[in-house]
Design a protein around this nucleic acid. Structure first.
Lengths: 347, 347
DNA sequence: TCAATATACTGAAACGTTACAGATTGCCAA
DNA sequence: TTGGCAATCTGTAACGTTTCAGTATATTGA
């Protein structure tokens, strides 16, 4: 009846992982037919298609990734590129979970590609592209003129950036509106009667540094407050550095009476510095801080916070890369997250 | 002279990624020879070996992972399996960096395999093993009788657990000595004159819950202090739950005058609860807490802390898995990290 | 009736690698 | 001289998949 004979690899098929060959043997079809039936190719009969898919489901067939990858070049991998020293801690875990959520019901795997302070940030990108290790890449710590984005754009590899660029090139991104955050923070402090404000900036060189500084400056002149320069620190500095320099700042004559901080960990240090200088939060100075986990209010109830959702960022970034891989227009895969209002302590 | 002719794929070799075939063509050798020369096989002449390796380095040859994987089954992948809801935040980022450090100069990639609360923790493991997606696996949230460890042991796939098991089976692990932590914490509190102690436990069911509880209990009887039961919370509970229940606890007549907490985030909530009840840290009650980043002292200077290094854990776990993959004895790949002393606030 | 065409299927080749089973050479002992 | 053997090297097949170029059968148009 069946002209095909049991082949040596399929005899012991009880234990081995099923392949297209196994399916072909079981259905009495050719591997080509099976392959096409599984991906709903048009030239396969409706009944055959159903039959193959049924058998495949029954025996738990899963395509061999190495086979697909070797043949097609498709890796089914998304790479998240992270700086091992400077990334915000909660950012790492939240963004990973955000990405995971989105790729959970796709064939994609998430690989984490780290690079260290000493390396050129372009190194890991070059590696990924040259070795064809991923179908899509997510990068953070985005710069206005970002060589990584330019490089990937040139090679045509889909990617998404956490944060925007400013190169006149269009690519997917997700960003938090830090201009809005900084300006709202200033307005809120002004509403509390604060007039001399300082800013604990994002890392110099990153795009959102510019956004933040601009939002801060614009709102300052809008409300008629003045800036107390505090350029000696950014949220990339160590806790100790931020703490001691904040204390120095707060001991000066023209110390600020309001501070805007761009990261929760930095805010802890800022508050410690304020108190080192013998001042009291909420009385001598108010602080507005971004946070990604809802912990700052436990720290000092006087703190004013704005929440940034990194998990959402992860999801959006994953959606963006997958969209690009899927053929959507890069320009349609950009999203901006609007900060909620400045939240005082509740209950 | 050379009997091999330029083949169609190698003519435009300027742009394409070099393969063994490219190297074979350039050196005038067969692909087999090239393959073996690159991996220092004994039957290759010393000069040939050097020549091949030189050319390979020059043109930046990198073995195609899909090719290797398809042929040998070796994935060069380590998978880190994480619970997307319950993992400690800093744990995720630190352990990833720890693992990264170790695998940086190996051919291994790190893939993150998440699973959610609703899933059977065995699901992701089954997936990894059935699809042969990784050469080694790292799991956390280890239980005394852990089905995942048993499963992988049965299938013979190398893995390492963060935390020990208690099944009479031997496998690589890295663990923090939570017995020592809890007992040291109790002794320290007793040294401060605290007599009625409560414990904010690890998640029930995990091995280190047992270790912690035992260390706590043993030290209690050693120093002659008593336990104030606080079984309504663990560090897996939400911040809000811990906070309100701590407040309830602290309003009772026989409230504790010392608390041991196993995670920094929980400690924030505990302190908030203490203060909700109108009590003062350091006066009415002392708290010893584990922490993985050095931030708790900024929170309240009265807090007593013990540091746990998750980055180290990541490195150790990676070393353990790689060791097992490399043929070392699983029993020789176990490590225990001893807690440092309880640290009071320093300037 | 015959050719043209659509439908449903198929084998062979290729992706890059490694393992197997030789093949060629030179050297030495007999 | 010859047989044996070590030292080097080589071609082929296979891993599991998709694509290319078909083949066989039924259906249609004239």
């Amino acid at each position: 009846m069946d002209r095909r004979s049991a082949e040596k690899d399929d005899e012991a098929s009880a234990k081995e992982r099923p392949t297209l060959k196994t399916l072909a043997f079981m259905t009495g079809l050719g591997v080509t037919t099976v392959s096409r039936a599984l991906k709903d190719a048009p030239e396969i009969g409706a009944e055959t298609r159903r039959r193959v898919q049924l058998v495949a489901k029954q025996i738990g067939y899963r395509p061999n990734r190495a086979g697909v990858r070797l043949r097609t070049g498709k890796t089914n991998v998304i790479s998240l590129v992270l700086n091992t020293e400077r990334e915000i801690m909660s950012f790492v875990s939240d963004i990973i979970y955000g990405v995971s959520e989105v790729i959970a019901d796709t064939p994609y795997h998430l690989i984490v590609t780290p690079y260290s302070r000493s390396q050129d940030p372009l190194d890991p990108i070059r590696y990924l592209v040259e070795t064809g290790s991923a179908d899509g890449v997510i990068i953070s710590r985005t710069q206005p003129n970002d060589p990584r984005a330019r490089y990937m754009l040139e090679r045509g590899i889909p990617f998404a950036t956490h944060g925007r660029t400013d190169m006149g090139l269009v690519h997917p991104y997700h960003d938090f509106d830090n201009y809005a955050f900084a300006s709202e923070a200033v307005r809120h402090l002004a509403g509390l009667g604060r007039r001399r404000l300082a800013l604990v900036t994002p890392p110099v060189g990153l795009t959102y540094y510019d956004h933040t500084v601009n939002g801060f400056a614009d709102a300052l002149s809008e409300v008629g407050a003045s800036e107390v320069p505090f350029n000696t620190v950014s949220i990339d500095h160590t806790i100790e550095q931020i703490r001691t320099r904040t204390a120095q700042l707060m001991r000066r004559d023209n110390r600020p009476d309001g501070i805007v901080s761009c990261a929760a960990a930095a805010t802890l240090a800022v508050v410690a510095g304020i108190e080192d200088a013998g001042l009291k939060l909420g009385r001598d100075v108010d602080v507005v801080s971004k946070q990604s986990s809802e912990l700052l209010h436990l720290f000092r109830r006087e703190l004013l916070v704005v929440n940034e959702n990194f998990r959402l960022a992860g999801s959006e970034l994953a959606r963006a890369v997958l969209g690009w891989i899927g053929g959507k227009e890069p320009g349609s895969l950009q999203s901006l997250s609007t900060p909620g209002e400045v939240l005082p302590y509740r209950g």
